[in-house]
Each structure stands twice: as C-alpha cells, then as structure tokens.
Design a protein around this nucleic acid. Structure first.
Length: 194
DNA sequence: CCCTGATTCGC
DNA sequence: GCGAATCAGG
C-alpha cells in the first residue's frame, strides 16, 4: 500500500483550511502550525499569494503596496551538492527527528481577540518607564555622564527630578541595554494600540 | 530581541 | 507550483 507524501502538495482540503483561517485573520505562522508541522509559515504565505488571497482585511485601503522592494542581489546559495540520489523510489525522508520549530503556546493578541472585561480603573495615567521592575542599588546607578559603551542606558525615573538614573548594568553587544531591559525595549508586550 | 507579511528566485 | 531565503516594517 502506498503511503507517505502528505507533507507536500496542497490538497483542496488544505487549501480551504488555509483560506478560511487566513480570512479569519490568523497569522501565517499560526495557520502553518494548524495545518501541520510539514508546513512552514513561508509555505503558507507563498500559497496565499499564489491564490491571490493577500489583503484579507482591507476594506478601505487605497494605499499602494509600499515599495516593490529593490532587491540588489538576493544571491541565493547554490545547491550545496546534488549528490542526493533522488528518485529510485527511495523515500528516505522523515527520519523521525521532528523538531517542533517555533512553539507558541501563548494566546497572543490576535485581531479577533476580544478585550477582557476588566473593570479595572486605570488611574495611572503616567506610567514610569518600567522602572519599578528592576531595582538598582544606589551605588550602581549612573547619571548621564557616567554612561559608557558597556552600560545599560535604560532610563529610570523622572528625568526632571533627582530620582532619575540609568540602569547601569552591563549592556549587551547587540544593544544599548542590558538583557533585562533589552527585552522591555522591544518585543511584543503590548503590541500596537489600535 | 521578538514578531508580522511581502517578495524573489532556484528548484 | 512550491517554499527557503531574504527583505522590510513594527
């Protein structure tokens, strides 16, 4: 009995699922995860475009597609070596080590995520720059002149008062902040406020 | 750093 | 047609 060859090939069923989920606003990675591990987010996006499904939720948008992206020279890596004997009816794929790439068990705020009915009163109109999250001993606090290339430049407190200082921890090579504040800087913590 | 979709191009 | 690599934005 033949078996296998399920990862590749977009069956009508899968295409329908793709359309459905895409229209519902799910992200490509989520759809990929839903379809199966044999499908990557790139595959989903690629298929979406081939189907001309892009622009799912854009009723009134006449904005041109940004820029055609002036590619200098993608220069893709040539085939490492076509020494892999293809054909010969040797289905040597699927060894078993299925790496669960990209695990995201977190709900994450998607487009159709309803707001939690939290009657909490937001009295704090002014939120400090995530200060109280990391206590810095006084002897470690730095002022503007004390900052160096290797000190975390995350500001803490109100710049207009004396209780202002910089984190001062050893900063990462990849940024001006320490590891802790580097995360706070970007990452999707609150996403965009619509 | 994380994520998102968009695009290109070798297969 | 397919999707990895890459790009570009947030």
């Amino acid at each position: 009995m033949d078996s296998g060859a399920q990862a590749a090939g977009w069956t009508d069923e899968r295409v329908e699922t793709l359309k459905k989920l895409w229209m519902e606003g799910l992200s490509a990675s989520q759809i990929a995860g839903e379809l199966g591990q044999g499908v990557t987010r790139n595959a989903v996006i690629g298929k979406v475009h081939r189907l001309k499904l892009s622009a799912r939720a854009k009723p009134t948008n006449t904005a041109p597609r940004a820029r055609p992206a002036p590619r200098p020279a993608p220069r893709r890596v040539a085939s490492p070596s076509a020494s892999l004997s293809s054909g010969s009816g040797g289905a040597s794929m699927m060894g078993g080590a299925v790496k669960a790439r990209m695990s995201m068990p977190r709900p994450q705020t998607m487009g159709a995520t309803a707001l939690a009915a939290s009657p909490e009163i937001e009295t704090n109109l002014y939120v400090a720059p995530a200060a109280a999250e990391l206590f810095i001993p006084e002897d470690k606090r730095l002022n503007l002149l004390q900052l160096t290339e290797s000190t975390c430049k995350w500001p803490i407190g109100d710049p207009l008062t004396k209780d202002f200082y910089f984190c001062g921890q050893h900063s990462l090579e990849s940024g001006p902040y320490c590891e802790f504040h580097s995360r706070r800087a970007y990452h999707q913590v609150d996403k965009k406020r619509r």
